[in-house]
């Protein structure tokens, strides 16, 4: 659906997007993750056809967004950052206006506006003035606008920014419901959002795509695997010897917990899952086991490790 190849965008003296390439298949929900200033919005602006690329090509549905702008735009529903709307218009009037601008005829625009208002839960506020709506409703109006011409690709730039948790949840549900029918590209700097909604993540930093994979794979790739936490009632020395004897354990740490229990943190080699091994050892030695969990690296760890902006900032 989207083919970006060697896209570079330079503003006067500053490179916002630096030679990135990626593709997005039809029906995917892809999250563009990165800190502020990573080039997410610029990438989206180029994708939407608002700005031309300095070099490189962007194709949407096989059409170049710059040379075949009309054909490409017909396939794109774009909601820019901060979801700009005309505050003095009424919801229905605004959506109708937008539908007309996107080339829908009178009758068609009327039925499409009805459909998207239903879809985005705007039925009750059709007559309300946009400026007086809550932020959550405004966001839905923006989404409805992006959907109104039935685009194959929906580009949403930070769709949940500034919403309260309830509103975020409903907007996310709405976005999830688009999966399958539409291809969705979302930018965000909120990690759980990506984990919840997206089938694939592109991590951007400093104008480059640093990683591109499913959230699960990214977590797996992190630090060579997972950490196992276990609490066992056994002599400390015996525990240390047991972990030393296991070739799969790369590192371990044993510390006293309450009572006779010891808390052991084990880091496995090459993503090996230690849980079964640990359980087998306790069984064999007749030790009492009260906790055995795998603590996985969250996407946040991946993100921090890949981008590492904070170190420079701290110095």
């Amino acid at each position: 659906m989207i083919e970006v190849s060697n896209l570079t965008k330079r503003y006067a003296g500053r490179t916002a997007v630096d030679d990135i390439s990626f593709t997005v298949a039809r029906g995917e929900i892809v999250g563009l993750l990165g800190p502020n200033g990573a080039g997410k919005s610029t990438t989206m602006r180029v994708l939407s056809g608002f700005m031309p690329a300095t070099s490189g090509t962007v194709r949407v549905g096989g059409f170049d967004v710059f040379h075949d702008a009309d054909e490409a735009r017909r396939r794109i529903g774009y909601m820019p950052e901060n979801n700009p709307l005309y505050p003095e218009m009424r919801v229905r009037e605004y959506l109708k206006f937008r539908a007309r601008l996107k080339g829908l005829g009178w009758k068609n625009s009327r039925s499409r506006v009805d459909t998207v208002m239903e879809q985005c839960g705007l039925k009750d506020v059709g007559r309300r003035i946009i400026g007086q709506l809550s932020k959550g409703y405004k966001q839905r109006v923006g989404l409805a606008d992006a959907l109104v011409h039935e685009p194959e690709l929906i580009i949403l730039d930070e769709p949940t920014v500034g919403l309260d948790p309830h509103q975020i949840r409903s907007v996310r549900t709405l976005i999830k419901s688009l999966a399958g029918k539409h291809t969705v590209l979302i930018s965000t700097h909120i990690l759980p959002e990506v984990e919840m909604m997206c089938g694939r993540v592109l991590i951007m930093f400093g104008g480059r795509v640093l990683a591109s994979d499913t959230p699960e794979n990214l977590q797996l790739r992190m630090a060579g695997g997972s950490q196992v936490i276990t609490e066992i009632a056994a002599p400390e020395k015996a525990l240390r010897e047991a972990w030393d004897g296991l070739p799969e354990v790369e590192q371990f740490n044993v510390s006293a917990s309450d009572g006779k229990f010891f808390r052991c943190a084990l880091i496995a080699r090459d993503g090996f899952d230690l849980r079964a091994t640990v359980f087998a050892i306790t069984q064999k030695n007749g030790w009492e086991l009260r906790e055995l969990t795998r603590s996985r690296h969250s996407l946040e760890d991946v993100y921090v490790q890949v981008t590492k902006p904070s170190q420079e900032e701290r110095e």
């Binding site: 939407s48 608002f50 009309d70 735009r73 909601m79 700009p84 005309y86 937008r98 080339g103």
Partner: peptide
């Protein structure tokens, strides 16, 4: 300033 220029210019007009 409000950003509606962007939504306006990404339609087919």
């Amino acid at each position: 300033a409000s950003g509606t220029f962007e939504t306006l210019m990404t339609t087919q007009i």
